[in-house]
Amino acid sequence: MQSAVDVLSWILLAAGGAFVFVGGLGALRLPDFYTRMHAASLTDGMGTILILVGIMLQAGWSLAAIKLIAILVCLLLTSPTASYALANAALLSGVEPGNSRAGKAEN
């Protein structure tokens, strides 16, 4: 039983590390500001969830698990808010979103 939880938590941690890395790669590879935001939200959303849940499984039922839940909830509430503030600030100060294709898709 214990080892099953261990294996699961290692898998979650490895997947989380992979997602975090892919997000960092995306932040470097993607061509403009708004598309880079998607890469950041990849690490902020999926990477955070996977890594913190993976650690939580290792911690078991303890004070550390409660603190980890608090960190997870705090990050999941604040990171979209910060992303929205960033995107909105960029939009309002005139960074153009998208390319020519954007106009056609708009309705």
């Binding site: 708004y34 939200s41 959303g45 999941l76 509430l77 979209p80 929205y84 995107a87 909105n88």
Partner: peptide, 16 residues
Amino acid sequence: LGNSITLSPGTVTLDV
């Protein structure tokens, strides 16, 4: 709604 859309990768809310 806006935060959920931002949280799922691939979509970012620009303005509400």
